[in-house]
Amino acid sequence: MANVVANFLYSKEHEWVEVIGEGRVRVGITDFAQHQLGDLVFVDLPQVGASVTADDSMGSVESVKAVSDIFSPVTGTVVEVNPVLEDEPETINSDPFQGGWMVVVELSDPDELNGLMNAEQYAAFTEEE
């Protein structure tokens, strides 16, 4: 079973969301997702200042198996991008919830967080897949 962090929120597209401050969240892909993808070799992320929209692609990850879209779980503006992933995309495989975070987003609509799953719901969701 994949690891799930208790106080994070999760999307059906296997992204996690950590609320880090007033109106800001950190986003990455889940342990379940990185296991499904295999060894990551490249990450394409949005630039700081880019607008992202919930459920729309905001970038991609490339593994030895395939290229997969990363879907934004929230709507807002990218205010930070993880610089480590440019040279070390495999960080997502080894540490998806800490070192492997992708972007920080300033939320346009904090109420969108209510539409995401909590850890218990996400764990049940992944068991069904």
Rank of each mutant, 00 (worst) to 15 (best):
R24Q: 14
I29F: 06
H14W: 09
V19T: 13
G59M: 01
G59V: 04
A50N: 14
P46F: 05
E22S: 14
T53V: 15
L45Y: 00
V43P: 00
G21P: 06
S51E: 14
L37Q: 05
V41K: 08
L37D: 04
T30H: 08
V78E: 12
G28A: 10
E18P: 01
G23I: 10
V64N: 13
D44L: 00
S60K: 03
S51C: 07
A50C: 12
Q36F: 00
F32P: 01
P46N: 07
V52F: 11
A50P: 05
T77P: 00
H14D: 10
G59Y: 02
S51H: 13
F71P: 00
Q36T: 07
D69K: 09
G23K: 09
T77S: 05
L45T: 02
G76E: 04
F42G: 01
H14R: 06
L40T: 02
D56N: 15
A54K: 15
V19Q: 14
M58K: 01
T53C: 08
V52D: 10
V74M: 05
V64Q: 13
R26T: 05
G23S: 10
T30R: 07
E18S: 15
A50Q: 14
F32E: 11
V41C: 06
F71A: 00
E62S: 07
V48Y: 04
